[in-house]
């Protein structure tokens, strides 16, 4: 079921401009930790990837079966689906420098 979703996303991405970033944020419920993570991610994307990113928030409390396919271990987790390769960052993203390294994002010159 999950593999299907991935494929669909992949085909969609081909139609998008090459530079589009697809990010997924896996959370459990809308706890304060999740909120922080989402806020941190959004802030980073706004400053580094304005207009070329999409964040999809997946609540594992509602879709627990998605955790297995996405190999989710920790909460919260950000997965960079595109551009390839897939990258994973754990935590509430409070350490900006690490997130930038993790997402392979060069600060805008």
């Amino acid at each position: 079921m999950k593999t299907k979703t991935v494929k669909r996303r992949a085909t969609v991405s081909k139609r998008q401009p090459a530079k589009l970033w697809q990010l997924r944020l896996y959370v459990m419920d809308s706890t304060a930790k999740s909120q922080t993570a989402f806020a941190n991610l959004k802030r980073l994307c706004e400053s580094h990837l304005k207009g070329i990113y999409r964040i999809k928030v997946i609540d594992l409390l509602k879709h627990p079966h998605l955790a297995k396919g996405a190999q989710i271990l920790a909460i919260p987790t950000v997965v960079r689906k595109l551009p390839k390769p897939v990258r994973t960052i754990l935590g509430n993203l409070s350490d900006t420098e690490r997130v930038l390294v993790g997402l392979d994002l060069r600060p805008v010159n």
């Binding site: 627990p64 909460i75 987790t77 960052i89 754990l90 935590g91 509430n92 993790g102």
Partner: peptide, 18 residues
């Protein structure tokens, strides 16, 4: 995997529970 800030292993719990 990169780690940035706090997290827990709720993902593992969810998988196991499911």
């Amino acid at each position: 995997m990169q780690e940035s800030g706090e997290y827990d292993l709720e993902g593992l719990f969810v998988r196991l529970n499911h």
